[in-house]
Design a binder for these strands. Structure first.
Lengths: 356, 356
DNA sequence: TTCCGTTGGACAAGCGCTTGATCATCGGCC
DNA sequence: GGCCGATGATCAAGCGCTTGTCCAACGGAA
């Protein structure tokens, strides 16, 4: 009855690049493959003699058995794999999100794979490949360029998808950080230092996070009884070059600000460079604080004051919510992460305004 | 004969989160599933009437058919997926490697997935999961902490693996950049500016690239007829903190160097910060050049001279070599990427030594 | 001794796709 | 008119794993 198994066991793994099969383990332990499967998966509905269990486990270990993910995925129609799409690995902001997602996925027994997709078209095709192709059970999308439009498939009700840090029309749930509050904290820090002429390096108009940060900026100014001057709000792309140029524009104003709140730490790095290039002393003549913290902040000159946001927790929470969706539970359409509160990390780039 | 197909076509995709099946497309086009498969894969051994082909293609498009990767992977025993393991997405150096690998993979019709694995243990388990589990056809490993030891499975002849930028004992092929030459170019740049007291921020002793860069440093000094002073070689981990501390040690020498070649741009950022913290002017009192270029280099103060290395091409080449291995062809054990040559990108951090 | 409930496993179908083998149909040729 | 080679598809097995079902053997109770 088991002859096919035994026969197979005599020929140990002809294929290269892949592990030994259930059949091989079964042959080694002299049981049926299904028994091996049940034992290795800890199937509660299985009753085996302890000795058999040991034999199977030993055989699996001896052969270095690793189940074939494709076969398992096919049979189970799930893969215990989650995907995370990011626009670029280069952006330091994603570091913590990735680590948080990875941590939550691992804790739930899932594998996390990353895919880099710069534009919406790429996100669309990656989404199709991954979700429709059955490669992953769910997808986290952290695309900066993702605006109001979304991949067709996503909108067509093919879900198991969560958007990170963007609110999108439609049924795709998203989880966002409390950008308003974070930016407000930054402005409050500047106000507390005595600044009254505070400018904002705002992000691109179409980006949701940029909008939220800008509105946090305005609100905080109003709350402090300060005017929101039109010229003090400069749009800047979320990269060094954007920050550099926007800063130059601010410095050309006849009445310069004494402090700048940047919506992006990357843009702030560019802005800092613009100050050095034009001989503007930071924080002597101008204070600067940036949204999001990163290792490099303390190694810049001057070290950069930042607004720390719970990005690790954002990645974790998004992953946990995704797992809820996968398990068929409903979750709110938009959730805002409030718990670890935004926190200003004061460094050398912020100081009281010049006596002037 | 086709009744099962038609029956299935009446129930359009009961499963959620996955696409329509071959069966559904076959039902829609009123042909056998195998015919659909052949047409969609452009099987040269298939002969179909143009009208049928059109019907099938239209049906697939109408249903938004995406083949199930697990089923295909199971049948084909390959997945058209490549994995790239990196220690951390945070490291700016990996950005270009990732882009290069992604580009070469895409050009060959492969999907690239990234996995973050910090230590050797994690690399080992990720390797098992991915290769033995049949999730990927091949793996690129760009682990910084990977030293002389490698995952067991890799060493056990389970290949389809390429190591990036580390030479490892054993049969795993690796492809490396020309670190010696790159570092030599940096030193030559400093020598040409008139420096004679040149120090090196060397990387960790156990890391292969660090060793190669250091030997390039020494050779270049010898070639220039300059002495290699013991104290001028300071080990520093490849991060900001490591560069910061190593730089402080250099600055405490009674006879300070007038120039520093850093083995890592990240460490150089830390080193620059150390100079600012101790009031050492760069490049007034000390010139600095860093190995590897990155966007941030031109936004630092002063902007940082760097040694550009062909990292994009490294990622591309490694991927192409991996595909060779997958296709069963032999490749050399260690290959050094020479073609786009290392190039010094001079910026403000390097200048002639002080008149002193 | 006989019957029956447990225990410890084996059996087989099926997940969606690929592919070598097979087969019906049809026009052309002698 | 019968045979044959193309043509244009269908059939069926199998990839490795999971899981509902089934079955042999065994021990205890009547």
């Amino acid at each position: 009855m088991l002859d096919h198994v035994v026969a197979n066991a005599k020929r140990p793994s002809a294929r290269v690049g892949q592990g030994s099969s259930l059949l091989a383990v079964a042959g080694e332990a002299r049981v049926h493959p299904s028994t091996v499967s049940r034992i290795l998966r800890d199937d509660p509905a299985v009753r085996v003699r302890p000795a058999t269990r040991q034999r199977v486990i030993a055989a699996a270990a001896a052969l270095g058995y690793v189940p074939n993910a494709n076969a398992r995925g096919l049979a189970l129609r799930r893969t215990t794999t989650l995907g995370l799409i990011i626009p670029s690995t280069a952006n330091i902001v994603y570091e913590q999100i990735i680590k948080g997602a990875e941590s939550a996925a691992r804790a739930a027994g899932y594998v996390l794979v990353l895919a880099e997709s710069a534009d919406v078209g790429q996100v669309d095709s990656a989404h199709r490949e991954l979700i429709l192709g059955g490669r992953v059970d769910g997808l986290l999308i952290a695309s900066g360029t993702l605006r109001e439009s979304l991949p067709r498939a996503v909108l067509n009700g093919v879900n198991n998808t969560i958007i990170l840090n963007r609110r999108i029309r439609g049924s795709v749930p998203s989880i966002i950080e409390d950008d308003e509050r974070g930016m407000a904290r930054g402005v409050e820090h500047l106000v507390a230092l005595g600044h009254t002429r505070i400018a904002c390096l705002a992000g691109p108009e179409e980006v949701d996070t940029a909008t939220r940060r800008l509105s946090g900026f305005k609100e905080a100014l109003r709350a402090a009884g300060l005017p929101v001057s039109r010229g003090y709000i400069q749009r800047a792309s979320f990269d060094e070059a954007g920050g550099y140029e926007a800063m130059l524009r601010l410095l050309q104003l006849e009445r310069r600000p004494t402090a700048v709140a940047a919506s992006s730490i990357v843009a702030a790095i560019g802005a800092l460079a613009a100050c050095h290039a034009t001989g503007v002393s930071v924080p002597g003549e101008l204070s600067m604080i940036a949204f999001h913290d990163a290792t490099i902040a303390q190694y810049l000159t001057p070290s950069l004051s930042t607004i720390w946001m719970p990005l690790f927790e954002l990645g974790e929470m998004a992953t946990r919510q995704l797992l809820e969706v996968i398990d068929g539970r409903d979750i709110p359409s938009v959730q805002r992460l409030q718990d670890p509160e935004p926190r200003v990390i004061p460094r050398a780039s912020t100081a009281p305004p010049p006596a002037d």
